[in-house]
């Protein structure tokens, strides 16, 4: 095993993951708002924000799906060593990480059941950049409207149309992250 696998985690996990969670919670509570996560050094091509989310939220109880270029040995080993999360298929996962193209088709991710809509996947989407312009967002967590540079619109509109079913998404670029829960109305 490469020694690099053992490094790159939070130096002080309880405190730094608490800060990372607050960034993740603020993002999920305010769709389109951009926050930052620091303190981790995941192997390429995982972004700092995505690595921080994985270390904050994943453990042996959560299945992680690695999509596309992220599904490589350094990333698999890093996640396994730092979180103990089992690596699973897209259909069974709690968290899926990858760029938008390799996460397709997104309809395969778990959307929960009518009685337990929380039993659904969270997508961690790696983007080249996130900016607060682009597609118009409205819904819970947004006072009037927000804007976010989404990779596309149709998939998110279809996901929101299934509310309360659906998956929820984080977008990561470098140390920046934003979120789009299923409750957000996209476009229009």
């Amino acid at each position: 095993m490469d020694a690099a696998v053992l490094g790159g985690g939070f130096a002080d996990a309880p405190v730094e993951s608490a800060r990372a969670f607050r960034a993740a919670m603020t993002a999920m509570a305010r769709p389109g708002a951009i926050s930052t996560i620091t303190g981790v050094r995941p192997p390429a091509p995982v972004s700092v924000a995505a690595g921080g989310l994985l270390l904050t939220l994943c453990d042996p109880d959560t299945g992680v799906h690695l999509a596309g270029a992220l599904d490589c040995l350094p990333v698999r080993d890093w996640i396994t060593f730092h979180t103990g999360a089992p690596l699973v298929s897209a259909e069974d996962c709690d968290f899926a990480v990858g760029d938008w193209e390799s996460l397709q088709p997104v309809a395969r991710f778990r959307a929960g059941t009518a009685q337990y809509p929380d039993r659904s996947a969270t997508l961690i989407v790696e983007l080249p950049q996130i900016v607060a312009t682009g597609v118009r967002l409205t819904g819970p967590g947004i006072r009037d409207s927000a804007a976010l540079s989404l990779p596309e619109m149709a998939a998110f509109q279809a996901n929101a149309a299934r509310f309360p079913l659906g998956w929820d998404a984080y977008f990561c670029a470098g140390d920046r992250l934003a979120a789009l829960p299923r409750s957000t109305k996209v476009g229009g």
Partner: peptide
Amino acid sequence: EQTKRMIRRAILKGLAIPGYQVP
């Protein structure tokens, strides 16, 4: 930490589905 992660995941799903009770 594992307990906090479990609670944190529940909080995030709760925020994504406002008003729904997450076990």
